[in-house]
């Protein structure tokens, strides 16, 4: 079962909640940090990330001696990543989406595919004891500095996970391509929000995205009590299950500043998260069985 933790807005506590869910689980679990621009889940789990690998994408490289500057490659490229100007053909590989079209269409066989590193995966595992002893495997995706294309890194991180194990996916914030890549094909999405006007605004965008993608989801309110009741009102009006409210508590901020997670500040949360995981697995069961 794959559960994505997402939010329309950054800084709602998505990462701390993902970590807490993985720690509270009563069976072996994988936590995938797909917030590849700013992965920070590893800080809270103290994992030994001893495996390192590159994420690469294929990009075209040009053999100038074969190219006759006919411009066919640039005509087919939907991303303006290759262009012929006068007697020069240029490739902008940071804009290339690896569709391979230019290579197919080149009459001179002047283009060949080469792998380019755009990010990294670091992984490892350790033993967790938050009431229930279990193994937590951690996969961290990170994008190489200066690269713009995060979806391939997110897909690679997700692909590395064992499909038969409980998987928690910490998604990038927002509702654009990276977030959609992270939540795509998950069995359930938990949207984390804050009870503030900003939280509500971004929650609405995230809800729209979930509905567009036809994904089952529920809402968690973090820092409950620091704002108003509008998020709760919105959820009940829209018939969206609000499955958990985590109260605004100084202990959480103090723990966070020490690099400690939600559960070391609020140990009483662990059983609640465990039963939430159980509930989600019951809710998604028919769907999962139907898919297989």
């Amino acid at each position: 079962m794959k559960i994505a933790i997402a939010s329309g807005k950054g800084g709602t506590g998505k990462t701390t909640l993902s970590v807490a869910l993985a720690q509270a689980a009563d069976k072996n679990v994988q936590l995938i940090d797909c917030d590849v621009e700013e992965p920070n889940g590893h800080i809270f789990i103290d994992a030994q990330l001893d495996k390192h690998e590159d994420v690469t994408i294929p990009i075209p490289v040009l053999d100038k001696t074969l190219c006759n500057n006919c411009g066919k490659c640039g005509e087919i490229c939907q991303f303006n990543a290759i262009v012929t100007i006068g007697d020069k053909t240029m490739i902008f590989d940071d804009m290339c989406h690896s569709c391979g079209g230019c290579i197919l269409v080149c009459p001179q066989q002047a283009l060949t595919e080469q792998q380019k590193t755009i990010g990294y995966l670091d992984s490892g595992s350790n033993t967790i004891n938050c009431g229930q002893v279990h193994q937590l495997s951690f996969i961290k995706g990170s994008i190489k500095i200066g690269e713009a294309m995060s979806p391939p890194v997110i897909r690679a991180a997700k692909k590395k996970a064992d499909q038969n194990q409980l998987t928690i996916i910490d998604c990038p914030p927002g509702t654009s391509c990276p977030m959609m890549t992270a939540v795509c094909d998950c069995d359930f999405v938990l949207l984390v929000t804050e009870p503030t006007p900003f939280g509500l605004h971004d929650l609405k965008l995230a809800v729209e995205t979930m509905r567009c993608m036809d994904l089952p989801f529920a809402v968690i309110v973090n820092r409950d009590g620091c704002g108003d009741e509008r998020v709760s009102e919105y959820c009940s009006a829209e018939k969206i299950p609000l499955v958990l409210k985590i109260k605004d508590d100084r202990r959480v901020a103090t723990a966070y500043s020490r690099g400690e997670g939600l559960l070391s500040a609020l140990p009483e949360l662990a059983p609640k998260l465990r039963s939430l995981l159980d509930d989600i697995s019951t809710w998604t069961k028919p769907a999962t069985e139907g898919k297989q």
């Binding site: 640039g74 991303f79 303006n80 262009v83 804009m95």
Partner: peptide, 29 residues
């Protein structure tokens, strides 16, 4: 265009035979 507008605009002006351009701002690509 979602991306690469500057690249294509550059191609447009080169294809029409211009040897210089005057504009307000021009990005790196």
């Amino acid at each position: 265009a979602t991306q690469g507008a500057g690249i294509q605009a550059a191609k447009t002006v080169v294809d029409c035979g211009a040897q210089a351009i005057i504009s307000g701002h021009c990005g790196p690509k």
